[in-house]
Amino acid sequence: MNFPNWNALADRALEGECLEREAARAVLHAPDDVLLDQLAAAYRVRRHYWGNRVRFHFLLNAQSGLCPEDCHYCSQSKISSAEIEKYPLMAKEKILSAAERAASLNAGTFCFVISGRSPNDSTLGKVVEAVREIKQTSDLKVCACLGLLSEEQTRQLADAGVDRVNHNLNTSEDYHPNICNTHTWRDRATTLKNVKAAGITTCSGGIIGMGESDDDIIDLALQLRELKVTSVPINFLIPIPGTPFARLNELNPRRCLRVLCLFRFLLPSQEIRIAGGREVHLRSLQPLGLYPANSIFVGDYLTTPGQAARRDLEMLQDAGFILEAPDGSPLDSKIPLNRLS
């Protein structure tokens, strides 16, 4: 395989050009001895749009388990036997307390997640009520992840003040039947279109390491580009015991970094977030992930733990990155670490 000049790829990304599939494959197949060159080129693109700022997102699993869908990667699905907490929608007081915790960690976005196919009227009403109170009492951006959504449901969320809705495509359209059969890839894409029609910012990404091919990864990035998604979380599969993908183990830190570089080249201006699996798969190379990506989750994920917030801030400060406020401005890079646990 002929490998391109990485800086030339960065130039093309900055000019708004879309890479050909051969160049995209080369990013994923490049040898280890050019990885730092790839990262430097990806950082040129990231720096152009985001400077050296990093945004923290805080994730709340507000309703856990009890899901009728059969997503093979998920510990909350109906086909999972994973030992996780299962509970209905949290009381509003607990949700507001979690939002306060997010603000104390200097998170720019509070990500509110419920399990299930789609919220019923009662659940959506409680979500709307909680969001309105959060917006009245803090500067946090609110991102809601509620499953499949209709046009009417997205309008209600917009009226409540939801800033962003997350609904991941997860993988390419062609590979989707290998990871889920209770809904289609098109169902997910329709939800994103409903979100955009309601005037809410779209958040959608994928999960890497589910047995997909390089072309599936490339297709996912291209499909997100076509949909003009604003925020892109990249998850790396955690093979949770009790799920159908429990035995999958396809990733290493260098592979994960190449994937992040590819998404930066194909989605140059988007917010790219290193999401679930960051600590498990990037391990000691986590700081290098911030050269293509510009946001991370702080704290825990849905049913798996993350590293301590203190360590996340140390990682940023040690690498010379600056934490970003909800309005996009830089926060004091010398935030006392003793404020974080």
Rank of each mutant, 00 (worst) to 15 (best):
C67Q: 11
L227H: 08
C74K: 13
S333F: 14
A8L: 10
L282T: 03
F236N: 01
E314T: 14
Q38G: 09
N61K: 08
L59N: 05
N166I: 03
S64T: 11
I179H: 06
V128S: 09
R117G: 04
T191G: 07
R186W: 10
K196E: 13
E100C: 06
S295V: 00
A160P: 01
T137D: 08
L148T: 03
S269M: 06
L169E: 00
G205W: 01
E129N: 15
S295N: 04
D121Y: 12
A221E: 00
C261V: 09
E324F: 00
P68A: 12
T171A: 07
A308K: 15
G206W: 01
N235E: 08
T171R: 04
R44L: 13
L220E: 03
A13S: 14
E15V: 09
S97L: 10
C203N: 03
G147D: 05
Q76V: 09
Y49H: 15
Q270E: 15
V298K: 00
N181T: 15
S77R: 06
T137G: 04
A130P: 02
R258P: 03
C203M: 07
D327T: 05
S118A: 14
C256S: 06
A130G: 04
H183S: 09
T230S: 12
E152F: 08
L146S: 07
P330C: 04
D300N: 15
S122K: 15
N252E: 10
E151C: 09
Q63E: 15
F236M: 05
N52H: 14
L89Y: 06
R117K: 14
Q63A: 10
S204I: 00
D174C: 12
F265A: 03
I218F: 00
F297N: 02
T202E: 01
H167P: 07
D215L: 01
E20W: 09
G199D: 14
A189C: 06
H57K: 11
A23D: 15
D327S: 05
D300S: 14
L222R: 12
V128T: 11
A10T: 07
S333M: 14
E133L: 12
V142Q: 00
F58R: 03
P268W: 08
H176T: 08
G289M: 06
D318L: 11
I134V: 15
E133R: 12
S341W: 13
L19W: 01
G205P: 03
A40Y: 12
E226H: 10
D214I: 04
L19C: 03
Y291V: 09
V259R: 00
A102Y: 02
G211A: 05
F56S: 02
R310P: 02
R258D: 04
L290R: 01
S80P: 10
L290K: 01
S269C: 07
T243W: 08
S81I: 13
L124I: 12
K228Y: 10
F321V: 01
A30E: 10
K228W: 10
G108P: 03
N249A: 13
G276M: 04
L14I: 08
N294P: 09
E20S: 08
G161K: 01
F265T: 04
G16V: 11
V280R: 15
L323T: 00
I335D: 03
R258I: 04
G199Q: 10
L323H: 00
T303R: 02
D32A: 11
G211S: 06
Q307R: 15
P4K: 03
